[in-house]
Amino acid sequence: MFNLLFSRFRRSHRWVYPVLSLVVALGLWLGQPLVVRAIPWGDLILQGIQVIQLSNISDRQEVQLGQQINAQLVRSQIRLHRDPRVQQYVDSIGQRLASSSSRPNIPYTFQVVDDPSVNAFATMGGFVYINTGLMRLADNEAQLASVIGHEIGHVAAKHALKQMKDMALARGVASLAGVNRNTLVNLGVELALRRPNSRNDEFEADQLGLKTLTQAGYAQSAMVSFMAKLLQRSSSVPTFLSTHPATSDRVARLQQMIDPSRADVGDGLDNAAYQARLRSLS
């Protein structure tokens, strides 16, 4: 009886077996993990950093980017002064100012560029550069400190970062996927050497620099006197001014911010001591 029933079941339900086979095969296929192109974790982390660099970069990331920009500058764009005494002297002034700045929580690096042109510039992450030509033009240490304080003001206000973001967007190299780190470094080098700051950025750096100069114990009058000296130096525009526009307006604003009765209160106004220091360093 059982054999008869089973024979009839097989004849009437032959279609069941192919269907069952298909269901089993489909279940096995769906149960397997999908094979996709794996993205290395390093690439994912790098992409994340690139996105942050254009939106919300941390202090640590800014310093790292500044280190890479500095390495490229030193390797192929500028020549640092070889006398370590000169570097130490400028660094001592810079560190004194940086500790009194509005952004003392990042490491600052102050370097002397062996270049006779009158210039100074800064890039992100606390890297500040002073040309030997500017050092020789300054009458005293306070004037030199006023320039360093101004450049620290640019770092404190993150002007280079803002310019980098604007430039990346304008050139179409920024996207949702981020920006290649090498591209950012190249943009940073270009900004440091050839990109002038806006009028508002200069005013802000002057204001921050003057405050830093005062808090570090230097005489406020030095900032105005050195800037006025640059304007009167020659009919041609010095390099320092070509990348720092609206200098006459800046002098007027600085004069308004300084209390005349306190202008010469502070360190660094001894011209003879500074010139003797420079002679010993040359």
Rank of each mutant, 00 (worst) to 15 (best):
Q111V: 02
T123W: 00
V185P: 02
Y89N: 04
L137A: 10
S99Y: 08
E141T: 00
N197Q: 07
L137S: 03
A177P: 01
L184K: 00
R195T: 12
L73Y: 02
G125Y: 01
V112P: 01
R181I: 09
A145E: 05
V19P: 06
G268Y: 10
F2L: 12
H81A: 14
D267I: 09
A98Y: 04
T132E: 10
Q215Y: 07
N70G: 03
L137Y: 04
G172I: 12
L73Q: 01
Q32N: 12
A276Q: 15
I49Y: 11
I52P: 08
R14L: 13
Q50K: 06
A228D: 15
I258F: 02
P18F: 10
S280C: 07
L191M: 05
Q67Y: 10
Q87A: 11
S282A: 11
L281H: 04
S225G: 02
N56A: 14
W29D: 06
L241C: 04
A252D: 05
R195A: 13
A38P: 03
V155Y: 05
M167S: 09
E62K: 15
N271K: 15
G125W: 00
V74I: 14
T132D: 09
Q255I: 07
V251T: 01
S92I: 11
T132I: 14
P260M: 02
G266P: 08
T212V: 08
D139E: 11
E204H: 08
M257V: 00
A222G: 06
N56M: 14
D91C: 07
I52Y: 14
Q50E: 13
A246G: 06
A138N: 00
I39H: 11
R233T: 03
L254K: 01
R10V: 09
R103V: 08
S100G: 12
A272C: 03
H154F: 13
Q215S: 12
Y129N: 00
T109Y: 10
D115F: 05
